[in-house]
Amino acid sequence: MKLLKDKLPILLFILLLAGGWELGTRLFDVPAYIIPRLSDVCAALLNHAALLGKHFALTLWEALLGLAFSVVFGVLSAIWIDSSSLARKTIYPLIVASQTIPIIALSPIMVMWFGYEIGSKISVVILFTFFPIAVNTADGFRAADREIGELLRSMGAGKTQLFLKWKIPSALPSFFTGLKMAAAISVGGATLGEWLGGESGLGVYTKRAANMLRGDDVFAGVLLLSLMGIALFVAAQMIERLVLGHRRS
């Protein structure tokens, strides 16, 4: 009940937007290839449900695999940066500086390296999502309360114990901040990867539909992509709450 009360304003607002969309397109007679009617978009969703489902699953799979690799690489890099002051002085600024490279320009290289199969899509997702995870986790390690570390050291904690019982729990909140950001943008990475060359996935689907000026199908695909992004973000948030729920927010 409380959840419903919390979410009621946003639900009503979405309903209002949907109503405005449907009414506006009818009232001003907007051509379907500019903005299709919402009812047409819904019809496109229903008519091609099976096909959209297949494409949706592939894009989701690419995004999830890319995220998983980013979590592994990102956390390992963060550990490296935290454990070596040389790495903090060299690798960390390099990772930050790498963000000035336009990822979109870099993405075709991934196609050259990994081909038109799923590898290039995953690598583009990694390009998008590695940074927030690595940097947030490294910052989390660094922000660990030094006095707690010293106290554990005075109780005889060794390096491994310090890492497991002090560093990791300290860095978890920052890690999840990074993960949520990464989850939200991972779908964008997967879509871009598909645009650059692929056979299926929602990115390919929307691009083909746009080429055929099928506005309702484009919007149906975009709607699903944004829902996927929201779902991934919410999932990351739920894991976060599960792990950190009892701590003070």
Binding site: E147, S154, M155, W166, R247
Partner: peptide
């Protein structure tokens, strides 16, 4: 390992425990 019980000025309790 040292057998001294050191109690720092700040409580230094771990918020995750």
């Amino acid at each position: 390992r040292s057998t001294i019980g050191y109690m720092p000025q700040r409580d230094c309790l771990m918020p995750w425990r």
